[in-house]
Design a protein around this nucleic acid. Structure first.
Lengths: 186, 186
DNA sequence: AAACTATATATCTAGCCGATATATATGGAA
DNA sequence: TTCCATATATATCGGCTAGATATATAGTTT
């Protein structure tokens, strides 16, 4: 599954420009499958070439022209075909955890700061997703589907679990840091 | 942060071959930062060229020769420098959630199967990590550091939270599927 | 004999991330 | 006035990576 499938999925919610696709990804589903312009635009070009989407250039006032993409019937079949495949395993990449793994090289102050930042970030994301739970605007859709509710709730639950774990277990890292007298200034 | 930092970190636990680094990643820390041969070997070559690691070729009986890598003092400095940077945000990629987002295209049977598989997988991983909690073998180390305990515990907590959420909320997706009469055979 | 598993190294290619560039427009700070 | 920031837009580049593939040595199973 690649960004093409993601774009086809977003376009199945309604036509939009590459920029708008990015906005939808960013606002509604980037917490479990992110994609930037560097991959969205090439994907859109490939799909346009393959006939999975059509593209219409539109001039705008006070704003640059935009290209609006619409999914084709061929694209809908491609989307469905991709979605019935066995999904690959979830993959997480956490630099924070790599740093925690080797946290003995941090001073107690640096360690505390990293832990605080990460907790704050998780709680912030959880809060943002919680606010989106009953809001179809980030999806650029007219209504929320069960799928949208499910994945948003998933994000809330997971980010809360992460923040909770870090809060409850930070002592595992901080106590040894203090005992070892790692007080060097940041 | 890239795979070089990860390899330096693993090598800071003790010298090992590229294959052994992969085994350590796979067995102990791949749940939060994975890396395959396609990125480990090029990274090792770059670091050997840069002087961050030394490499010693060793012949073996009944097995192919191997190259053992050892972190240098320069490599230790590079590792420390990388670890005190502000880590990038965690990034998750979940094809499962993409499928759930657009799950209306699945039959009730397919949906149930995907949910079951994912729950089983999360629980399996949580169980595997739980078994590793007090085991330094997967790390190829002599003892467990606070960091190792922390990250392993994190994995357990997160995979459990994921499985729990899916179990408790699957009805959000399955009830509409049944109501809509999506009973097509898989 | 072929397939599978384990231990090993190595590489290829399609895809992606993050940065960068450009364009149109507005507003605020130096 | 210039720079910076923000928003709306499209586009691309280069370094990195995932997954597949290849090769080698050896043993076990079908």
């Amino acid at each position: 599954m690649d960004v093409r499938t993601l774009c086809l999925g977003v376009l199945s919610l309604g036509e939009r420009s590459g920029y708008e696709i990015r906005k939808t990804v960013e606002g509604a589903l980037g917490h479990f499958f992110d994609a930037g312009f560097g991959s969205i635009y090439p994907a859109l070009n490939r799909m346009a070439k393959d006939g999975d989407v059509t593209v219409t250039a539109i001039g705008q006032e006070k704003r640059p022209d935009k290209k609006v993409y619409r999914i084709t019937q061929k694209g809908r079949l491609a989307l469905a075909e991709a979605l019935i495949q066995v999904p690959a395993k979830d993959r997480l990449r956490s630099e924070f955890l790599v740093v925690m793994l080797f946290s003995e090289i941090l001073s107690a102050g640096q360690l505390g700061a990293r832990l605080d930042e990460n907790i704050r970030l998780h709680r912030q994301i959880a809060k943002g997703l919680e606010a989106c739970k009953n809001d179809c605007v980030p999806w650029g859709a007219q209504r929320l589907t069960p799928g949208m509710r499910f994945v948003t709730g998933y994000g809330v639950a997971m980010h809360k679990a992460a923040a909770d774990y870090i809060e409850e277990n930070r002592h595992l890292l901080e106590a040894p840091a203090v005992l070892a007298g790692r007080n060097a200034a940041d």
